[in-house]
Amino acid sequence: MAASPPVVFAVLGETLAERSGVINLSLDGLLLLTAMVAFAAARATTTLLAGFAAAMAVGALVGLVVAVASLTLRQHQVAAGFVLTLLCQNLAYVLGAPVAHLPGPQVAHLPLPLFRNWPVLGPVLFSQDPLVYLSIAATAAAWWYLAKTRPGLVLRGAGERPAAALARGIHVTRVRYLYTLAGGALVGLGGAAFSLAVKPGWSRPYGIEGTGWIVLAIVIFGNWDPLRGAAGAYLFVLLQTLATVLQSLMPRVPTQVFPTLPFPLMILALLLVTVGNSEWVQRGLRRLPAGTRRGVVRVLRALQASPPAALGVPLEQE
């Protein structure tokens, strides 16, 4: 639970950006860079808030680069994102070297007085640091925003069928810029949550390398939905924790195999959620007897992830 906020924030941020139609592939490096920035800024100013603000600003800035490259300059989103991944990672190491292994401020624990004494659930849910509460609130807010608000509907429209959004007077490019930036800022918040709460401080390697790629997979697994995405994030954190537990349970397996377990499991999950779209499955389904088919189709439908229709597709104006 305590380790989940960074992943949750990053998943939400990427979900927003992708919902508007822009893939920000730079996540893996961006999380590192913003973690470093957050720690350095919080340490320099001795205010946590400055750390969070700086990380969110850097996140938005990288989002801006992705947006400029892909929306204004029409370059391949994946290319730009991939390069930024490496750039951010290396920048984090270079710029972070002076603050590595130094003590710094960190987010204090904040049990909620009213609820913490509930049996079982109390200590798990309500005796956490504020970021945990914030990440839960952010998940709910993101869901609410997408499902219940007018700008949220506009955002979904822009990623789904930009031409139609345009016909309804929506400035699709502006919307995409906005959410790429906002998404980047949320990812930055995730990075800050790493270095100011979950894994206080900075070092090289910092220990979250690879997490960004997982976040990208979780977004797919979550079917671009904040709630399902957050569930995926919790699942991943749980798997990571299991790795340590498994070491004591299965002493014969080399310990280093466990930390990598979540990764193959993630691909399997991806395969499960996307395979239903493929032609041979469709063809195979058609051959099944009607009764079985309906059952299988229902299962596949439930698992199915279908991306925003215009994800990664540049907007062609007439």
Partner: peptide, 14 residues
């Protein structure tokens, strides 16, 4: 229109 949105949301969008 937006195939993945509900009729109501299609009605509302914009």
């Amino acid at each position: 229109d937006f195939p993945s949105l509900s009729v109501l949301d299609n009605f509302l969008l914009g």
